[in-house]
Design a protein around this nucleic acid. Structure first.
Lengths: 197, 197, 197, 197
DNA sequence: CATGAATGAGATTTCATTCAT
DNA sequence: CATGAATGAAATCTCATTCAT
């Protein structure tokens, strides 16, 4: 199973709603939340503006829905590492590869966009406190600790190491989204050098 | 000399214009370009909305001006490494530290914002083609090559390595701008692990 | 058929757009282009300001559209004289009467307003070069030449005579538009004295 | 003496004020009253915006002053015909020529602009009632009556004839102002055909 | 469900006017 | 007198949202 996969995550019951959500995610990621107009999302989805409001009460609601999905998906993908019958290093490599190679780049960008939009509704701030960096660090801590014991993970403060690892991965995904040709997504092994040895 | 320093770079002749530019840079970085309203910038600068238009023909012009400054500053800061009387590894460490520790984080965010705003004027696209990743790679190539010869830089395709290095640094700065407490700026030595050995 | 008739010319497919165009024409003519605020046009048409922008990209576009219609209408009205089975003198009298008695006065005023608005887009300058005085003179030249041969049109340089005739008619319509009671529209026979004998 | 002469009429005591008035007249005529920005007038006069307000309390005051001058000048120029020792026909020809050949074209345009600007102060409406068409007709009536008695002026309702004569002259001046090359100023003899025989 | 015309609140921009220098 | 930076009210324009069809 590949975590963070757009195709599967957006498998909403309603075909039409899924179509609009996919369009919204793409447009939000490419143009920013404020830069995304309902008309653009409707055009991307090939439907009328009115239909957008049949499925979402407001633009904010669409953002909240997508951010929630993105956060839950990335969290549960991370969580699912625990039960995999592979070494700790392999788990980290698998997560890294999943994030980098997946269509999930839109999610990272959307989360980033949502974070800098200070006037989003309070509801979304609740999500961000629930899915804080600490939550991810806690999930990864046992894995990294095992890696340190095995001597394959760099020594030092693991909390700092893990949150740096996620920050770097998020950052790389953010700047590479939007089809920009300016930046380069590093290879998995390069990212691994950040945390190993 | 510390490259990418806001304080020095914005040393515009006109006190007032500088004040507005500094406010604009902060607001653009914190709220995104479309999320930034002229009223916010004026309030941040402590001036009237009208005065903004005394110094800038339009919001777009302000964005263009700031992006141009940001690109030129980061390019010349990178270029200035050449003449430093230190080892190649020290040059890379110095650049890494300059980027991470400096107030330049606003610039990375602004450049990122500008990149994803597809409907900015053509003028800005010219800047992006001038200051492409290749331009930065070309500047760093001799330094990395020397490092490889000395055996301190990781073996492999240098073009890929250098552009990955910049992508990661940019990404980290982008996600950490805006005062977010979600992400963590990695330590310099962690970034250095990316390129060394 | 009466040329230059507002009622027929504005027969746009879209009822609503026609309603706004008619309002715009009236307001432009009565208050000048810069003196006309979108709020006035919307109020005159009985719609919201926003709806104006549903049908026109900008105020300029509305001006351009109306000027184009005005120019095309007056040109084709003039051109249609050619095929009328009446004497040359009757043709001139018919044109004179059509211009004076018709609702077309708004058009003359609008064209005049547009001419003196130097900062209208280039697009409108193209229209003015296409529908120059020379174009009208060329249309009328054969008719006036026939009149001269018949001895009913004043002798002398016909190019000068015809363009003066149009200038006077335009001028009279311009100063009489806007419901002013200052000026007087001359009778057709008085205008005819300008060109006959 | 040539009536309606800009050069002499604007002979204000203050050189600087005259300079600004001349600029204002030109800009008002060329761009319309609402289309004329104080910045344009200041630039045309080669002074600062602030100085405009040293000499005029407001834009409206400048318009009122210029319109008053224009109305008074054209009225007294017409009135001065009475005392000329020439025939009635010569008086009409002289007036016609004065209007056409003089720099006074800006005045006609300004008066026209002022007339269609419905939201000008009440003060200006007083002028227009004082210098109505009737006032001019009254001045010319004795001259035209004499011409009719001498058999050189066309028969018919003189009030209608005279006001049409002025309307046509005003109209021609209006559409020809602003440096437009579209229209043609008729020759004096052509205008004379309107009223003679 | 689906459309897109219509609205109105809010954003960008302009500009007459003021005022410190 | 003279300047032009500074202001704020009003204009143009945008767009999320509603609603009749």
């Amino acid at each position: 199973m590949v975590p963070l996969n757009n195709e599967q995550i957006l498998q909403v019951r309603d075909e039409r709603k899924e179509q609009i959500m996919r369009a919204a995610l793409k447009v939000f990621a490419e143009r920013g939340i404020e830069g995304s107009k309902i008309s653009m999302i409707a055009a991307e989805a090939g439907v009328s503006q009115g239909l957008f409001y049949h499925y979402f009460k407001s633009k904010d609601e669409a953002v909240i829905t997508l951010v929630q999905i993105a956060l839950e998906a990335s969290y549960s993908a991370t969580k699912s590492l625990q039960d995999m019958p592979i070494s700790s290093l392999e788990k980290i490599r698998f997560l890294t590869q999943s994030i980098i190679e997946d269509g999930g780049k839109y999610y990272f960008l959307l989360i980033h966009q949502a974070r800098i939009s200070e006037d989003l509704p309070d509801q979304i701030k609740v999500f961000f406190s629930q899915y804080s960096m600490k939550a991810y660090v806690d999930l990864m801590m046992p894995i990294f600790e095992e890696g340190q014991r095995e001597g394959v993970i760099a020594a030092g403060d693991l909390e700092k190491l893990i949150s740096s690892y996620f920050s770097i991965l998020s950052g790389v995904m953010v700047v590479n989204a939007g089809g920009s040709s300016l930046y380069t997504i590093p290879e998995v092994e390069m990212i691994m050098r950040l945390v190993t040895k």
